[in-house]
Simulated assay, not measured.
Amino acid sequence: MKMNSSKMFFLGFMITGVMLCLCSNNWLFIWCGLELSLISFLPLIHSTQIISSESSMKYFLVQSVSSGMLILGLMMMLTLKLNYNLIIASSILIKMGVAPFHSWLLGVVEGLSMIPMMLMFTVSKIAPLMMLTFITLSLALIICLTMVTGAMLGLNQSSTRKIITYSSIFNMGLILMSIKNNFIWFYYLVIYSILVSMLVFLIFKMNMFYVNQMITMENLMSYKMGLWFILLSMGGMPPFVGFSIKLIVIEFSVIHQMTINLIIMILFSLLVMFFYLRLSYLSIMFFSMSNKWMTLNLSKMPMMFMMFNTLTLPIYLTTKIFY
């Protein structure tokens, strides 16, 4: 996606819509911010690919249905005084794309270019998560279903786009576990957003959209090393920065006695780490025709990614004092 003036205009309005949601104390203004963010994101999806039209139409229809459910829940809140929490929570979960409302996300991701894909996994999650903090409904079943779905269905995928999507679904379950603590879920979202943005950047830079392509690409060994570090960090392997966000959620779950969710999180994190390691195994350790000492010729961008993943773990030691 070329960032011309029109794209920058719509990107600015999308961020404005998210900020409107965050700064509003009125449900109606929050809904207006969501609609502004939605209508600004649609032109960003459009590209020269034919499938991008299908992706934008799917995204528009799903988001329109969820917005209609949200305004219905708000009307019930103001007039009928019925149990509106379920309808509002369902509409927010549809917007986020968590299980069992995740099917639309897979169809949309296939037609996205790099920057819209980053925005979908990062910026577009902020407003719905903020809205969920106002909902008193228990999300324990949704959390378990989201983590199981993201881990199990990501195992048999050959498309790296879908692997990243199922990884995002799994991590949304972890964020929902800590949704009652604003600092923890926002800290998790920020670190995960940085990691998934670096992963999407490398996937597009290496032009590797399927798993078997990682074996044949031999001229980008430094990018493969950066990809390996990012995947280990997203899986929660110490001493990378991704370990800190997983550890915070585990501590939060222990303190609040969320035993079942914690057990499911630990068990299915192993499955997620398995398909992360499968990518790095195929790209680096399975078959390589380049000389191993050529891995020392690192490019600037992968080197920055590796330094971020290895040197920022002390951030966790300083953030523990805030919660």
Rank of each mutant, 00 (worst) to 15 (best):
C21F: 05
L112D: 01
S6F: 09
V123Y: 07
S56Y: 10
K95I: 04
N25Y: 14
V65R: 06
I71M: 07
T48S: 10
W27G: 10
I45W: 07
V98A: 04
S6G: 09
V62I: 08
M8D: 11
L72D: 08
H46L: 06
S67A: 06
S24F: 09
F121Y: 07
L61D: 06
I126P: 08
K81N: 11
L11K: 04
V123M: 04
N85G: 15
L70I: 00
S91I: 04
M14E: 02
Q63H: 01
S67V: 01
G68I: 01
S64H: 04
M131T: 04
A89M: 08
M117V: 13
G12R: 04
N83R: 11
I51Y: 11
L112G: 04
L106S: 11
G33F: 03
F41E: 00
F60T: 03
I71D: 07
W104K: 06
M14N: 02
M19H: 06
K81L: 12
S52Q: 09
I15K: 10
M117I: 08
M76A: 08
V18C: 14
G97Q: 01
A99V: 03
L105G: 12
L106Y: 08
E35W: 05
F10E: 01
S64R: 05
P116D: 00
M3I: 09
G107S: 03
H102G: 04
C23T: 15
G73Y: 00
I50K: 15
V108C: 01
L106P: 12
C21M: 15
S24V: 03
M117C: 11
L132R: 00
L11F: 12
L119K: 14
S64F: 04
S40K: 06
Y59K: 03
L42D: 05
I135R: 02
I126R: 00
Y84P: 03
L20G: 01
I94W: 07
V98W: 03
N83C: 11
I30Y: 15
S40P: 00
Y84N: 10
I126L: 05
P43M: 12
M77T: 08
S52T: 10
M118T: 08
L42H: 12
L82H: 11
A99H: 05
E110A: 13
T48K: 12
M130E: 13
S55D: 01
I51R: 11
I50A: 14
L137R: 05
G12T: 01
W104V: 01
C21E: 09
I92E: 06
M131H: 04
S6W: 13
M75Y: 11
S113A: 11
T122V: 02
V98S: 09
S90A: 14
F10D: 00
S103G: 10
